[in-house]
Simulated scan of single mutants.
Amino acid sequence: MSPQCSVVVCETSQSLSTLRAEMARLRSMLGGDIVQSRPYRIEGSVTSDWRMVERHLDGGDLRSAVPAYSGPLLPQSTAPGVVARREQLELRLRSAILESGSVDLLTTWTRSRSGIGDLDAWEAQWRLLPQGSPLATMSHNEVVRLRIEYGLDPQTGRIARS
């Protein structure tokens, strides 16, 4: 049993040294008043942009939620919980923008990383803009481009025949 205990002790001390290094890194980034030791813990309140967006959406304040959305939540993460939260937040925000009928919000969305290829948003934006508006012309051109890219008829938006 002694060899097994010695391996566990090695693994534990290696894990502890990794933990210490990570906590030191966090302390240097966040400050000693936030990262506490004995036991290691984070003190104080922590905020995040995605929680702010959720709070605005929960409160029905879409005009504050849209500018608070800085982009997809941890876009490089493949952790299932993060992916689910990222997709849920983006879908919720997108749906609210589309339902709003607000050209300003649609324009903000279609200029974002998430909305640049959103055909539904571009079509809604194009429909809401007055004819003759330079933005309407640009929106129409983007609708046509996206329809072609997605294999749809550029005029009708229906599935193109091969």
Rank of each mutant, 00 (worst) to 15 (best):
S133F: 04
S102D: 09
E149W: 06
W126H: 11
E149K: 09
G115S: 13
Q131R: 04
S112N: 12
W122H: 12
L152E: 05
M138H: 10
R111D: 15
P134N: 01
I148Q: 14
L135T: 10
P154S: 06
I148L: 14
D104Q: 13
M138D: 14
E142D: 10
Q131T: 04
L119C: 10
L128I: 05
M138A: 15
D153T: 03
R158D: 11
T108Y: 06
L106Y: 03
I159Y: 05
Q125E: 09
G132Q: 05
Q125K: 12
V144I: 11
R145I: 07
D104L: 09
R113G: 13
G132L: 00
S112R: 11
I148K: 14
V144Y: 07
P154E: 02
S112C: 12
T107R: 12
H140P: 05
R158W: 04
L146Q: 02
I159F: 03
G157T: 06
A124Q: 08
E99M: 03
A121G: 00
L105W: 00
S102T: 05
V144N: 07
Y150M: 10
A124K: 03
I159N: 01
A160V: 01
S100R: 06
T107E: 13
L106C: 10
I116V: 14
L152A: 07
I159Q: 12
R113Q: 13
N141K: 11
T156P: 03
G151A: 02
D118E: 08
R113C: 13
W126Y: 09
A121W: 00
L135Y: 00
P130S: 04
A136M: 02
V143R: 07
E149G: 10
H140S: 15
Q155D: 14
D120P: 08
Y150F: 12
A160K: 01
G117L: 12
L128P: 05
N141F: 08
W109Y: 09
R161H: 08
G117E: 15
D118L: 06
R161Q: 12
L128K: 00
R127T: 07
I148T: 12
E123F: 00
S133C: 05
P134L: 01
E99T: 07
A160C: 06
L135P: 00
G151N: 06
G117V: 14
E99G: 07
S100E: 01
E123I: 01
Q125Y: 09
R111L: 12
R113D: 15
D118I: 05
S133P: 03
A124C: 05
V103C: 12
W122E: 08
T137K: 06
S139P: 01
Q125N: 10
T110V: 15
